[in-house]
Design a binder for these strands. Sequence first.
RNA 1: CGGGGUGUAGCGCAGAUGGUAGCGUGCUACGUUCGGGACGUAGAGGUCGCAGGUUCAAAUCCUGUCACCCCGACCA
Length: 488
Amino acid sequence: MAKEITSRADDYSQWYLDIVRKARLADNSPVRGCMVIKPHGFAIWEKMRDSLDAMFKETGHVNAYFPLFIPKSFLSKEASHVEGFAKECAVVTHYRLKNDPNGGGVIVDPEAKLEEELIVRPTSETIIWHTYKDWIKSYRDLPILINQWANVVRWEMRTRPFLRTTEFLWQEGHTAHATAEEAMAETRLILDIYARFAEEYMAMPVIKGVKTANERFAGADDTFCIEALMQDGKALQAGTSHFLGQNFAKAFDVLFLNKENQQEHVWASSWGVSTRLVGGLIMTHSDDDGLVLPPKLAPVQVVIVPIPKPFPELLSEADKIVAQLRAKGISVKVDTDDQNRPGFKFAEYEMIGVPVRIGLGQRDLDAGQVEVARRDTKEKTSVPLEGIAEYVDQLLRDIQDNLFNRAKAHRTEYTTAVDTWDDFVSVLENKGGFISAHWDGTSETELKIKEMTKATIRCIPLDAPEEQGACILTGKPSSQRVLFAKAY
RNA sequence: CGGGGUGUAGCGCAGAUGGUAGCGUGCUACGUUCGGGACGUAGAGGUCGCAGGUUCAAAUCCUGUCACCCCGACCA
């Protein structure tokens, strides 16, 4: 059994932290709420980044980069935006240190105070729209379809590795359009890309929906999201795509001449996913033995372990397998370490989530086969060397599918439709998961439910059918069900 | 910011009534092992969070301070 991983049943939160540490994804840092992303964790993020980046580019987006620092005054230009972010901004007030005359090391030089303080971006709408003002004069300048890969800082009260850190990595897309319809189409296009990425690459089923006014992004007219359900029954907002209307164009005075030669404010969208996805990936698939990764995002898909040690004859056989696998585009590593014993290695590769392990010993070679172990089910099978690449290629697809189906079955099991307040409370307390229920559409009711139960409306699902019903709290009429859950 | 807790070796911990620091794990070397987290032997590693104070003597007592963790309010 795995050493020193708290079981999910005992303490899900501790299990999560154990996985992050034992699978060598990230370490704590000296800075509160910030983490060091270690090579294995970063490799997973790189896979995500590369896959998403390709999807963005296929749909006509280009990358650019805007500054880390934003003049403080920019933030206040859009009223609800400042309200949303002001209380979690890191502020730069000085630009120089000096030696402490009292011998206490270095201190901030009081004479180096900035004329206008800078904030460290919590998101880049303001500086980007300030820039777009210069770029956009005519409908011919539109659309602008820009994405940036960056770090942002939000001074959160409580943090958890990947799920919520003070500094995090993300991509943020900021697009500008001539019409509302076009901006909305862009918002929806990105939502679809996010959902496709979550399901096809992360093997994490998601619900596409729209946020209620309470949960909406500060400065958006509408916020669309993908919501996933974790193993412990809590929801995770995995990505958001915002229809910004003309809010930022108005705040930053971005006008263009339309085809009718009339001045009009530009329409906008913004959208992002972050390193939080790594946390979602962990909490969707991993188990008490360690990380479980979908093959499409695994930095190494197959590891070959010579048993008991990397003897030359085993290594030359391993090299042949490597060549066959690589020819199929499979990433593979041969374990050439001669210090640790096989059992240790098996446990170690399970811990870091390598999807497929091939055991290669003399016993196998004599029989013309290898031992293939899959991480998701931990099943081991003897497979003939002949055709091994085809077998592994198919196995990786099977694992990818199995992880998705398993997660989807879990979500189905933990999605409950309720029609009364008692059932709502009971399901929330005893079972968790998504609760599909009627709601009267008011912020007041939503906030009251949140206050009473800690559950929030995760989204109004886009595919929710029309259905007459009564709000679980107030009994007022409702025309469709929404999804409630406790969330990360 | 409210309520609770913890700071001692890389990590996890023990050190009653004060006497100058230890266990597990990990690390290094050598040997025996090796098909599911091996074992033996020998080593390296700590200004006990920080600053004062009491004392012949402080990880231990006192004062202050800092940091982190957990529970709430806020959040991708």
